[in-house]
Simulated assay, not measured.
Amino acid sequence: MDKYVVNASLIADINKGNERSFSLLYNCYYTYLCTFATTYVFCPEKAEEIVNDVFMRIWDNRASITFPIHFYLLQSVRNACLNYLRMLRNEQNAMDEYRLLLLDLHENFCLNDNNPLSLLEFRELERQVQMVVETLPAKCKKIFEYYLYQGKSSRQIAEELDININTVRVQIKNALDRMKAVLGPKIVYLLSFLLSGTFFK
C-alpha cells in the first residue's frame, strides 16, 4: 500500500466521478484492507468480498468522501466485518450452541478494539490447536476432528458415527474445555477454524 499517493487532489477527483482516480485508490488499499479484514473474519475469500463491497459503497457515495481517508477505510472495513459476524450470529439454524458462543466472544473481542493476531501468531495458534487435538482421548479426538476440521454439527456427527447426540455434545464440550485450559483467552480464535475450512488441509 502506498497511501502517500492518495492525497486531497485524488479524493477531489473521485468526488467528481473520476474512475481512474478511484482505481488508483482501490489498487493502493485493496491488499492492505483484505489483510486487515482477514484478521477479523479469518477467511481470505470472505475478506476480499467484504473489501470489494466497501469500495462499491464508497464509489456509490463518492461525492461525500473526504481526505484523509485512511482511517475511514479501516473503520468501514471493520464495521463490515462486524456486520458479517452478526449475520452469522443470526443464522442460528446453521450453528450449534458452541459456535454461537464463540461468535459472541469474537464479536465482543472486535468491539473492544483489541489488536487481532498477527499472521505469525495465528500460525503458532494453529500449531497449538493441532497439538491439543492430538492429546485428546481417541473417541473425543475423532468427534472433535469432525466438528473442528469438517464443520459438521453435533447432529450430523451423531448420525454419521451412529451414536447418541448427547454423547457428541459432551465430547465436544470436553475438547473445548481442554482447548480453553491450554489457550486461555485465545479460545476466541478457535472461531477461525469454525468459520473457515481452509486450515489443516
Rank of each mutant, 00 (worst) to 15 (best):
A94G: 07
S118E: 10
L88G: 07
G17W: 01
S153T: 13
L191G: 08
A94K: 14
L120P: 02
Y26E: 11
M1N: 11
Q130T: 04
Y98A: 11
R99G: 11
F42A: 03
S154A: 15
P116F: 03
S192N: 03
A80R: 12
Y26Q: 04
I172T: 03
S9D: 04
N108W: 01
K141Y: 03
L194N: 00
C110R: 02
T135E: 14
L161R: 00
Q92C: 05
M95Q: 14
D96Q: 13
I172L: 14
L88C: 10
K186G: 01
I65Y: 08
S118A: 11
R78M: 12
S154F: 14
T38H: 09
K142Q: 13
E49D: 14
T135P: 08
F71M: 12
Y189P: 06
Y146G: 01
K201F: 06
L125V: 06
F200P: 13
E134N: 10
K46H: 09
K46A: 00
A12C: 05
G197F: 00
D2N: 13
A175I: 00
L33D: 00
I163G: 02
R99F: 01
S64D: 13
Y40V: 11
N52W: 15
N27Q: 11
C110K: 03
Y189L: 03
A47C: 03
E45R: 05
Y147C: 07
E124C: 10
T31A: 05
P44G: 13
N7V: 08
P185S: 13
L120G: 04
